[in-house]
Amino acid sequence: MSYGAWIMLTGSLVGVTCGIVGCFLILRKMAMLADAISHTVLLGIVLAYLVSHSLEGIYMLVGAGIIGLLTAFLVQVLHTSGVQSDAAIGVVFTSLFAFGVILLSAFAGKVHLDVNHALMGEITFIPWNTLTIGGMNLGPSAVWMLGSVLLINLILIFLFYKEIKISSFDPAMASAIGIPVMFIHYLLMSMVSITTVASFDSVGAILVVAMLIVPGATAYLLTDKLIVMLVISAAIGVIAAIGGYYAALIWNISISGSMASIAGLIFAVTFILSPKHGLMAKLIARRSIVAEQS
């Protein structure tokens, strides 16, 4: 495959993986918790490196998974001890992130992790960093990592689809019929964590948030079916990734930034023009009601 094709494949995998998980975050009103996790994952990566002295994907996944769950857990703890939830999220993610940055600077000589890289990703380097097993070049390791995480997420969602669905829609009913709502919550948070860390390398922390939230929010304006929402969201993730790549080529700008901007553009258009829930549709509906009455 060509250099550009690998980048587009990586971006698309990010789009699909984030797009799918993101839908559940939006429906459960946890978008900002995902934002928090995408920041604190930095700490997980740094700690994983300091412990394992390796930049292997698996250590990063474990480190980020643990810190992601810790973030969700700390937010929960603060919330139950009386801190309002938005402030709880704000305090937890800023302090863990600050701690991560301090560790990074303190061990700057030893860690081959660049903060800018962590934040903005370096998708342009992705194709060079390949996975070789037994002398065989299997392509970029990021593709393998994203592919595995996507597969894990899909399997988990497939297995627990109805549990996730009912505990998102009606948690009281869910626990009345015996579904462990807390378990489902932490399951989703784990999915967010590993998704974030897998996407981290290519798009960076903040843009993971864009890919988690924007496609899902757009899909939410286009359909009233959960399964369709997941598909549309994944598709928008891919379109944003590929569109972002070409836009970046044309204007010679950051690929990840351009992906987020394209995603934002798609949302803006949908927000105005969506046939069901768009601004225009609402205005027209209001007009016709007024017209009928007069």
Binding site: L207, V209, A210, G257, G264, F267
Partner: peptide, 14 residues
């Protein structure tokens, strides 16, 4: 909030 935050930031990076 998350949507606006991340898109603005992405555009800033651009």
């Amino acid at each position: 909030i998350g949507l606006v935050l991340s898109v603005f930031f992405g555009f800033g990076i651009v």
